[in-house]
Nucleic acid binder design. Structure first.
Length: 145
DNA sequence: GCCAACGTTGGC
DNA sequence: GCCAACGTTGGC
């Protein structure tokens, strides 16, 4: 099991829209960055991910799960660009803001801070547990604390 | 809305 | 293969 973080500008694709898709999930298309794409190619079914609102909100709002392995992005005729599908799992009981993450000593190496512009990024297990804890979730069971 | 950071493109 | 120009991301 690996952990990830997906950024989305809420006025383009929000957590509410993601949740409305339910278990069917939705293709995470539109990624045109090699590093982000490579991360998606590494994802496995059942991997968990934070859903982060960029530009507006600037906070982790929920938890999603990979529900389809990397496949060609259907929105472009270019075989360089692949993507996975994700589905919503649960809300963060308390949103974890970028400010909170930056203020945490334990999260100082998190990609959200160090690789600001990367839109699909890996999350280390200890970072996963810590962000979940700050958001009011047990990172292993994903049950409220 | 500005601008810094940084990824990509394309000329040489 | 270098690097300048350019475009995009995303925090502020």
């Amino acid at each position: 099991m690996q952990y990830w973080l997906f950024k989305s500008e809420p006025f383009k694709w929000s957590w509410d829209q993601q949740k409305a898709k339910g278990d069917a999930g939705e293709e995470w298309d539109g990624i045109r960055n090699y590093q982000a794409r490579n991360n998606m190619r590494l994802m496995e079914l059942g991997d968990k991910a934070f859903f982060y609102h960029s530009n507006e909100g600037l906070e982790v709002v929920g938890i999603a799960e990979i529900c389809a392995l990397s496949h060609p992005d259907t929105t472009i005729e270019d075989d360089r660009w692949d993507c996975v599908d994700i589905k919503a799992v649960c809300d963060m009981p308390k949103f974890v803001t970028l400010k909170d993450v930056k203020a945490s000593q334990a999260l100082s190496d998190m990609a959200l801070v160090t690789s600001m512009r990367l839109s699909v990024q890996p999350v280390k297990p200890d970072e996963w547990i810590e962000v979940c804890r700050m958001g009011g979730l047990n990172g292993n069971t994903l049950k409220p604390l």
